[in-house]
Design a binder for these strands. Structure first.
Lengths: 231, 231
DNA sequence: CAGTGGTCTAGACCACCGG
DNA sequence: CGGTGGTCTAGACCACTGT
């Protein structure tokens, strides 16, 4: 008796044919039934293989039209963003956190625009430093919408960092992320031990829970920081 | 007769319970058979829902141990990276490309280290500019391994940009990407119309085909560029 | 309208690994 | 060892959409 054909084998074989240009970009592939017959497996097995290739942006499928190799491969890059503490400790360094400032204010205009807050909305503004082995690692400029998370006003952010607190309070929210390069201001330079105008890798993250804005964070990394991904 | 229960419904319901803290982080969830019974569907349907939640980093599954809500949610960010031409034209701007320099050289040490090339390996070094409506958009510093892609030496890169040429020549390769912020050198500043030391959002991409290094590209974006993702 | 992918089912066997 | 997830099968019906 032969081994069962797995969806991984099917996927790999299809990928190999695409890479070898047997199925060039734009080519119409055989239907699932034909492939199942060729590979000697059930249609569901082919289906799973093709679905994963679709998710990875390799092929395009449309009912009735069939399956084609994508012309312009839209490459997808997937980053994993662990908790900062985990990221730092995984390098062998000790993680340390410090609260720089804390105040409750009316949301400034730019924040109200970004979080879709009404006029006069009260927000908690936190500035924090994160260290790896006592070397500055990241400066955090955090705003929390107090009408979405009123408990935040009473929380003690001198020991817990805002992100970890929020993960506990509002787990599994939706978010949008923007990466950019910004120049260090004089103040940022002092916190991060870099000279003014140094390039800083910056992450801007906005978080929502069921349509309501929860928080916005600007995370400034020290010069030299890189974000790595495989794809 | 009732509607069939779909894997999306199952997934959504499980997610809802997690969000509502009915199943808090660390909680052991019921097994697939129990869930299938509760939702009134086949085990395969539950399985698919749970597999997707696993892929999204929401839950953790281990044979015999069962399924748990993740303690520290490892958030995943997925970027779609279209062809530069497509990215620029989708903003309504006109895309223009220009080759700045082209030379065939022995790979410098840092490149040999990164691409795992033997001593004396010949590479094609290209410098290119990409414009959006004639405004500088990106400076590309590209190295192509000629032993992996010998046809590149004869290719005409004055009209085709290297990335589009490579996509045609070597489709669907593996790659690693690194994002960082770097300071503009004087030369880079001239090309990108920014002052020296301006922060530049930089993408460093290395590409492999079946274990062999194909190309390395450093892509310097003008100041102000942002990379956006939802997750 | 007909052909393609998308999904569900019920059952089966297997692989892994915790107790 | 035995319970859990992981996968395959064969069949069925459905949803979308090109012709």
């Amino acid at each position: 008796m032969e081994q069962k054909v797995t969806f991984r084998q099917v996927k790999q074989e299809v990928l190999a044919r695409i890479r070898a240009n047997i199925w060039a970009p734009g080519t119409l592939l055989p239907g699932e039934i034909d492939l199942a017959a060729e590979f000697g497996c059930a249609r569901a097995t082919v289906s799973r293989a093709m679905r994963e290739l679709t998710d990875e942006g390799i092929i395009e499928r449309r009912r009735k039209a069939g399956t084609r190799v994508k012309m312009a491969p839209v490459r997808q890059v997937k980053f994993e963003i662990p908790l900062l503490r985990v990221e730092i400790e995984s390098t062998g360094a000790a993680y340390r956190y410090a609260l720089v400032s804390r105040e409750v204010v009316d949301a400034p205009d730019w924040l109200r625009a970004r979080l879709a807050l009404p006029q006069g909305a009260r927000v908690l503004h936190l500035e924090c430093m994160h260290y790896a082995d006592n070397a500055p690692f990241q400066f955090e400029d955090r705003w929390i919408n107090l009408s979405a998370v009123p408990e935040a006003e009473a929380a003690d952010f001198t020991t817990d960092n805002p992100n970890e607190w929020l993960v506990r309070a509002v787990p599994f929210s939706d978010a949008a992320v923007r990466f950019s390069a910004t120049a260090a201001t004089e103040a940022l330079g002092r916190f991060l031990s870099v000279s003014p105008n140094s390039p800083l890798f910056t992450v801007d993250r906005t978080t929502w829970i069921s349509g309501q804005a929860v928080t916005n964070a600007r995370l400034y990394h020290t010069t030299g920081y890189e974000m790595v991904a495989l794809y």
